[in-house]
Amino acid sequence: MAACVGNSCIPGETLQEERQESSDIRKVVLGDGLRCNIVASSEEHSLPVITKNGILRRRKPNIYYVDSYQKRYIPSKNDSVIGIVTTKTLDFFWVDINASEPAALSYLAFEGATKKNRPEINVGDLVFCKVVLAHPDLEPELVCVDSTGKKGNLGQLNDGIMFSCSINLVRKVLNEKCRLLHLLSKETPFELVAGINGRIWVNSNSLRKTILLRDTILKAEHTPYEEMSNIVNDFATELTGIP
């Protein structure tokens, strides 16, 4: 049984229709909730299979994933995540990324890092990373550089506050249809980093504003896109009492 983009799907359904639209199955990127199943037939071929309940989504150019309500993060390659450093060893930082096991972050996975010039990161620090290895039988591996070796917007997160939320809220905030961040930026300047592992970091010029921003973002989870302006208006009203 084939699943269609935008419709509900259940484990066991396949992406057979999407495969027929693509001239080369290797161009299809499988995200959270899908895996490649090798099927023996006249000739072996890979068949994308749904592994959890939810709504099948497609992100251009050819990325498929299952959108479902969850708080436990399942690592997927190329995901951007916010982690908490829990342990330092000789060659690695071990980072909590809200998954079933910690992820490994090499000392050399930072811009300009060498064996003699190691990054100054301690246990308890926050890091914004990208997942480069996600396999069911291996620990996830992270990096804080892009494909060119530059840090970009990755690396250590200083000041601000980090809070946990559902993965659905992160996807909602990052959705181009959601105008929440755009509307909030008109009221006050702030910095925000969203990790697809269900963590958001936010920072502004005062702690009270930062806490108010956090509370407003959390309210957005059950607010329709067209009503985002209402919670931003409430935010602006409360903001008037903060110096």
Rank of each mutant, 00 (worst) to 15 (best):
S80R: 14
E227R: 09
M162N: 14
G152E: 15
I167C: 08
E141N: 11
L138T: 12
D79M: 01
L108C: 06
A220W: 07
K52A: 07
N175W: 11
A220F: 02
T148C: 01
T223C: 05
F110Y: 06
N168R: 11
I55Y: 01
K115Q: 06
P48T: 07
L192A: 14
I97Y: 06
L90D: 14
E226I: 07
V123A: 00
Q20H: 13
P189D: 10
N7W: 12
I231E: 11
Y65G: 04
Q156L: 14
L183R: 15
E43P: 03
K116W: 06
S100H: 14
P243N: 14
Q156T: 15
L207I: 08
E226S: 04
L181Y: 05
T223M: 09
T188S: 04
E141T: 13
W94H: 15
L90I: 11
D67H: 10
T14I: 00
R35I: 08
L180M: 09
S46N: 11
P243Y: 10
N233C: 05
K209F: 00
G112Y: 07
G12M: 09
K116I: 01
G241I: 03
Y225R: 07
G160Q: 04
E176F: 09
L207G: 01
E120H: 09
D215N: 13
W201M: 05
K60F: 08
S42H: 12
Q16S: 14
Y69N: 07
T89A: 08
H222D: 12
W94A: 02
N98G: 04
S76L: 01
K27W: 02
T188P: 02
L213Q: 09
A99V: 08
S23F: 12
C178P: 14
C165A: 02
I97W: 09
T14K: 01
N53P: 03
V145I: 15
K88Q: 13
K52V: 06
L105Y: 03
D32N: 11
E176A: 06
A40E: 14
N175E: 13
N37H: 15
M162E: 15
S46E: 15
V232Y: 08
T114C: 00
G33A: 04
A99M: 07
C165N: 10
G198K: 04
E226R: 08
P61G: 00
L181A: 09
N98V: 03
A236C: 11
T188Q: 01
A194Y: 05
E101P: 04
D159W: 06
E187I: 07
K172N: 06
V66M: 04
H182R: 13
I161G: 01
W94R: 13
Y64W: 10
R26Y: 15
V123T: 11
K88G: 01
T216W: 01
T87M: 03
E221P: 05
G33E: 06
K88N: 07
K88M: 06
I10A: 08
S42I: 10
S8N: 13
I242Q: 05
I97C: 06
N122S: 12
G12D: 13
A109E: 01
F190S: 02
F235L: 01
V29D: 10
